[in-house]
């Protein structure tokens, strides 16, 4: 009984901000503080969401968005990890490339979108590339850093036991760098969702970003907010999935004492 009560107060503490925000959101248009034509109350948004779910539109757009996000992420993760491991392992190369990478990282994917359209057209390819570009840098740079910062004592220890280069790379450097690599992947995941929306707002006929923009243009405001909520849920879902994967790879970190 006590446990149950603790559970409720615990989850109340965590969600109180969210609950207050939704209450305020409901209240503001109803009380006339904000014009309800521009800000639909959550109740209207929920019924729009349900209608979109029933018609199958939401699922259709969500699946297309998800597919784009996953393809872009998959390319970014494989590219970022392979090159990151390679560059971090050979420290000399990292020195040559660091300035280049730092400037590329600062180059917003949105700013480069016109370039991608020029080069690759308005089709799926340039959408994938913008997502790839946005999520690549945190993955690549974190992987490089992770490999670079592997404790030399561990490498020496493996060497003193007669380990081969292959063993050191696969069994020492890779697991030691894994936490940093995952931080990069999770950061890349959130950049991926952000750039996805931008990509879908230009020259697209499907996806959640398109749904949001199209609903606004046709003045279907509750649908617009429904699309935004759908996007937020998708972002949370991706982050949650990445967290789960991270957890299964770094279960040894459970309960590492602070300051250890």
């Amino acid at each position: 009984m006590r446990k149950l009560a603790n559970f409720f107060t615990g989850s109340l503490e965590k969600t109180i901000g969210l609950i207050l925000f939704i209450a305020l959101w409901e209240l503001a248009p109803r009380a006339g503080w904000v014009n309800s034509t521009y800000l639909s109350p959550p109740s209207a948004v929920v019924s729009a969401l349900i209608a979109l779910l029933k018609s199958g539109d939401l699922i259709k757009h969500l699946l297309i968005s998800l597919q784009r996000a996953l393809v872009g992420m998959a390319v970014a993760v494989s590219f970022g990890m392979i090159f990151g491991l390679f560059i971090g392992y050979f420290k000399k190369i990292e020195g040559y490339l660091d300035a280049l990478f730092q400037s590329f990282r600062q180059m917003s994917a949105f700013a480069l979108f016109p370039v991608f359209i020029l080069l690759f057209g308005v089709g799926e390819l340039s959408k994938t590339i913008i997502i790839f570009w946005a999520s690549l840098w945190p993955i690549l740079l974190n992987t490089i850093n992770g490999v670079k910062n592997v404790d030399t004592l561990l490498v020496q220890s493996a060497k003193s036991m007669g380990a081969s280069q292959k063993f050191i790379f696969l069994r020492v450097i890779l697991p030691a760098a894994a936490p940093d690599i995952f931080t990069g992947i999770r950061l890349g995941g959130s950049y991926c969702v952000m750039s996805l929306v931008a990509a879908e707002m230009i020259g697209a006929t499907s996806g959640l970003g398109y749904l949001i923009l199209y609903s606004q243009e046709t003045f279907n405001i509750p649908d617009m907010y429904a699309g935004i909520v759908g996007l937020a849920i998708m972002g949370l879902g991706i982050n949650y999935a990445l967290k789960l994967i991270e957890k299964s790879f770094s279960s040894w970190k459970q309960g590492v004492a602070v300051g250890e």
Partner: peptide
């Protein structure tokens, strides 16, 4: 450089945390 007949114990333990 590489040999199977030596073993080293370090001051910093050098255990693999994972």
């Amino acid at each position: 450089d590489r040999s199977f007949d030596r073993g080293m114990v370090f001051q910093g333990y050098a255990l693999f945390p994972w």
